[in-house]
Structure formats: C-alpha cells, structure tokens
Design a protein around this nucleic acid. Sequence first.
DNA 1: CCTTGCTGTAATAGAGGCTGTTACAGCAGA
DNA 2: TCTGCTGTAACAGCCTCTATTACAGCAAGG
Lengths: 143, 143
Amino acid sequence: MAANSRLTIAVHILTWLALAHRRGTELLTSDQVAASVNTNPVIIRRSLGDLRRAGLVTVRHGAGAGWSLARAPEEIVLLDVYDAVEREPLFGMHHTEPNLECPVGKGIRPALGDVYGRAELALRTELGRTSVADVLSETLLVN
Amino acid sequence: MAANSRLTIAVHILTWLALAHRRGTELLTSDQVAASVNTNPVIIRRSLGDLRRAGLVTVRHGAGAGWSLARAPEEIVLLDVYDAVEREPLFGMHHTEPNLECPVGKGIRPALGDVYGRAELALRTELGRTSVADVLSETLLVN
DNA sequence: CCTTGCTGTAATAGAGGCTGTTACAGCAGA
DNA sequence: TCTGCTGTAACAGCCTCTATTACAGCAAGG
C-alpha cells in the first residue's frame, strides 16, 4: 500500500505557520496554506482540524479568519503531530482469527503485540526528538 | 488506512515452520500453514514466495512437496521478515510536488526525508532485536 | 513414463482508505 | 447586514489489501 501523506501534510502546514509567524504574519487561511502545499484547501482544513483537536493550532472565525500555532514551534515535536493525524497501529494483526487449536495460532497475537509495541515505541521516541522548529531550520538550509 | 497484515502473516508462517521442525516435521504445505493462519492457501503461497525470494525459506516441488526454514529460527530476525514483505516507506511524501516558490515548499522534502530516515532506522533497529525463535518461545508461553 | 499432489501465478471481486472536488451552512468581525 | 473564511457532508476516482477460483508447471515415486 502506498503510505499515506498525512504526517507530511501536517508538518508542512505547521512549518509554514511557524515561518509566517516569524515573518510577522499572525494568521494564514487554508487557501494560503494550500498554495504552499499545492493541494485543495479542503485537504488542508481537514488536517488543520486534526491539529486543532490536538491543541497544536488555534483558529479564528469570521471576517479576517485564519490559523496560527497554539505553541512555540520549539514546543511541538513530530510525535505530537503523529498522534494528531495517525489513527492506525503500524502493523495490522490477522484479518480473521487464527486457528486457536494450533499452538502458534493461539499464542502468536500477544507475542506479536509485544514486539510491535516495542517497535512502535522506538519509532515514537525518535519522532519525539525533532520539533517543528528543527524542521523549519533544516528546511531553510536549502534556500 | 487499516495497516496491512503482511508482517503478521509472514511471522506466523515462519513461527509455525519453526515449531513443526522442532517437532520433527520437516515440510509443511501451504494448505497446512493456511489451516493455522485461518486464511486461503494462496495468501500463504504469496507470502511464502516473498520469504523464498528473501532466502528465508526453501521449497520442495513435485509429489511430497512443502516448505521449510532456510536458516535456524535464531538466525531470522523480524527485520529480515519486514524487508521481505514490506515495500513502501513508512511515511508518504506529498502526492503533488509542493510549491517550489515557497521556501517551505522548496525545502521541506529533504528535511522530512532526514527525519523519516531516522525514524525508520529506529524501527528497523528494534525489529532486528527479535528473532523467530524469540517469537516462538513467547508464543508457547500462552499454551 | 505417467500419475499425483503441490507450487506459482493470473484474473477477478469486494471492501475500504486516501486524495481531490464541489457545495453549502455557520460563524464572527467590520 | 455584509463579507470572507471555516467546518463538513457528499461524491468520484484511484489504489491496495484480502480472498477466491482456476489452471499450468514441476518433480517424486511408482
């Protein structure tokens, strides 16, 4: 399966909000963000909704509406973003229950659950080491 | 998206082959494995094909055909299995190229590539710490 | 050499997720 | 009240995954 791009889109949004804030622009509309990501504004609004529910961005309604970061970019790590936009575990279990009369079928799911848990923890720990501010710094190196 | 179960199926197969070998059964057919996993034998044969191409199992053709492990279960780690059955990177990049006239659009992909690379490495390192023999031991604890 | 049983793979179908798009009600600042 | 943007539903197209049927190919053993 082609991996989804939700984390990429969300980090792109947050990085762009961080840069805009640094440049003195407090609010960005979903249209403005969509112009940088190069996709439809509804895609951006859906992602911003996830980020808002996670407390990472705030929205202002009415005329002159727009979005801004809810915390300093140094205080938002990619693990926060991952939790905001990803719902599925990394590895799926069997679609149908394995044969419980086979010793392997009976015991494999808890055994795999342990291994998968350790693997996800390693991934999460690494994602917790990079902030949106870090991504912004590295992004600007290319320019 | 619901995560796929390819790694789960493949590890189940290998664990079952390891247990059968320990019990003195040298060869298992895809039908026998399918009975434990509780799925269609073609699903099993497809997974076994991946594992064969990766050098983790060997197949015997003709009458009395079947499958066996190509290495000791202690010598097969879940990272080997992961590489045998997973083709896609963990995180997808933008579907459409971001706006290169925006500093974020221009620089974000290499920046994200670095972060994603570190995260995948952490995951792979952890998957390299568990062998099929380990999974078999933990599986049999339940029985 | 031929029967037999299993492999290897193509073709197909259903289910579901992701992206992209249109449409529109709701909200709040001016 | 006007205006511009948000929030979300609805839908389409595409793709992947699982499952299933069908069948050609292969080799061991008689």
